[in-house]
Design a protein around this nucleic acid. Structure first.
Lengths: 218, 218
DNA sequence: ATAAATTTTCATGTTTTTTTCACATATTTG
DNA sequence: CAAATATGTGAAAAAAACATGAAAATTTAT
């Protein structure tokens, strides 16, 4: 997950970067609109966080140019009040906006929300006889449909899209349940249990990573 | 899909063009009514987006002349309030109108809606004894005609044309009811209910996809 | 204008899913 | 090996999602 942070103030870039990295994102920076456009042409970002007021080229213009070529979600930063109406009136296809001053935590939460919304759907992931067809929203084992509950389905989808990667309970909760889930960690365990059962012989591919969480490994 | 955008303000033409191109449309421009008439005689457009107030020849006159010769859908642009009533009284065969200032996103949505409305289909979809003959606009089960209401028909058509694909309530609403439906999600449920009844033994092929929506699966 | 048909809303009941939690089992550590 | 820590599990409670029927609102036809 690569994110481009565009702001002319280094301090802001640094803070945002730090928090995003804590959550496992890769972050690159640009200090003005021109740089932002250039970088986003050369790289594949999953999200752009863009300030509005900047020298060289402002955020609106930069977004306009980038969106012409690439379909990347954008989160806008704006000083309180100013320029705000424009954002709404001039529909640039902004995914969300945050007004300064903002809480880094909230920003990260919003970033995650956007990424989740924009997650590509309709993929078909196959691991031997285990197939997850996201378009049909269906999981089959050796051709036979398995009746997963919604949570089980989401969990499996997240697992298989992160093959070989250990996932903490917290990570699973924020990414599948949502950042606003305030329940018990261990509810993950219960779902892993039922999912393992549902997957039959493929259940074993969800491995326990002690002290951390779980991982799918095929 | 080729669209002609007619407006005397270059800025508006540019913005509209930009957004339409993002959605894969080919766009040509005209800056007044005369040009518009001329261009549309020489080219085959799938849609014309026409401003009303223009020098040389206004939008009404241009549309009238074009419609005399060609059967092209037209979307009118008008400044808020002014000239507006005329559009309704004047039966020019306008397909839709948008008042300035407008959100480009909405404009594109309306363009798509018009194009979709004007698409001739006429397919015949068969699933065992269940046949949807779009040309005749009729559904039969084992040869016997079924009396579907318009909504039921549209819903079934959308379902069967998306066999094996899970469809969210939102997706169903925007594609069948239209992007401007602001009612209750759950109205979909009610229609699914009646449709299932109408389809008798074929009702079971509309499956519930919990937490998502429904899918047709034959 | 009136009646009929269709669509939408909404409250209710039912089913399914999710969460919690206590206890069992397994693993690590001193 | 015992204690501490972490995960597995089953069952009950809580929550959520859907199906349904009926009434209200809207649209269409007569």
């Amino acid at each position: 997950m690569k994110i481009l942070v565009v702001d002319d103030e280094k301090l802001i870039r640094d803070v945002v970067k730090e928090y995003l990295q804590l959550d496992g994102f890769t972050v690159e920076e640009a200090s003005n609109g021109d740089e932002a456009v250039e970088l986003s042409m050369q790289n594949e970002y999953n999200l752009i966080i863009m300030d509005i007021m900047m020298p060289k080229k402002d955020g609106y213009q930069a977004v306009r140019e980038i969106k012409k070529v690439k379909d990347i979600p954008v989160l806008m930063l704006s000083a309180r009040g100013e320029e705000f109406d424009k954002l709404i009136g001039f529909d640039l296809g902004i995914d969300d906006y945050v007004t300064k001053p903002f809480s880094p935590k909230e920003l990260v939460a919003r970033v995650k929300a956007i990424i989740k919304r924009n997650e590509k759907s309709g993929v078909k992931l196959e691991f031997g006889g285990l197939v997850l067809d996201d378009k049909a929203h269906e999981v089959t084992i050796d051709g036979k449909s398995v009746n997963l509950t919604p949570k089980e389905y989401d969990l499996l989808k997240y697992f298989v899209s992160n093959n070989h990667i250990a996932l903490s309970r917290e990570q699973l909760l924020t990414n599948i349940w949502g950042y606003d889930f305030y329940g018990d960690d261990r509810t993950v365990d219960t779902h892993v249990k039922t999912l393992r059962h549902q997957l039959g012989k493929y259940g074993q591919y969800i491995k326990t990573v002690r002290k951390v969480g779980y991982k799918f490994e095929y």
